[in-house]
């Protein structure tokens, strides 16, 4: 089913959220949410990466290109990175990239950043629910999808 038919499917628009997460903290947190059988919006597609330091801004662009309506980038809290400083470096990168995306006119309600540890399953669940609802209210990212045609 393509994004378009999904957008008009009965029951209304269900956004696609891409989550780019670090293996050691956020992925483990999401895993904990799963094993604890917590329920949350099924709109998120998780891409597991070794560390936030591995998350190239190109991944965010690619996610939007491939039809994501919202993107979440998440990793270990400052000080907890398993490669010591990956998240410190990526934080700087995000400052630049977020500003760039904002300047280009991407609605910042479609791009989120967070720190979620392996034990923060509840934070993960809340965040996914909130982001999904927010993006759902915004509607499909037609601006980006239009340039895809």
């Amino acid at each position: 089913m393509s994004e378009k038919s999904q957008a008009t499917a009965p029951g209304g628009f269900e956004p696609k959220i891409t989550a780019l997460v670090c293996n050691w903290c956020t992925y483990a947190g999401a895993d904990l949410a799963g094993t604890s059988r917590m329920e949350y919006r099924p709109n998120v597609r998780i891409v597991k990466l070794p560390c936030t330091g591995r998350i190239d801004p190109l991944f965010i662009i690619k996610a939007f290109e491939k039809g994501a309506d919202g993107v979440l980038v998440s990793g270990c809290h400052p000080g907890d990175c398993h490669y010591t400083a990956g998240n410190y470096h990526s934080r700087r990168r995000w400052v630049g990239f977020k500003g760039l995306m904002e300047f280009t006119g991407i609605d910042m309600r479609r791009l989120h950043f967070s720190w979620i540890s392996a034990s923060e399953a509840i934070k993960w669940v809340d965040l996914i629910n909130n982001v999904t609802d927010e993006v759902k209210a915004l509607g499909p990212f037609t601006d980006y999808q239009q340039i895809n045609e």
Binding site: G79, A85, Y88, H89, R91, R92, R93, K98, F113
Partner: peptide, 30 residues
């Protein structure tokens, strides 16, 4: 504004994207 850095003045200083400070701003990160 974020890192107090102006490029092209100091040869000894590393460009801001290859260094970091633990206290860098992260008010936009949830």
């Amino acid at each position: 504004e974020s890192f107090g850095y102006k490029s092209g003045f100091d040869m000894e200083e590393h460009p801001p994207m290859i260094v970091y400070k633990p206290e860098d701003k992260d008010d936009f990160i949830k």
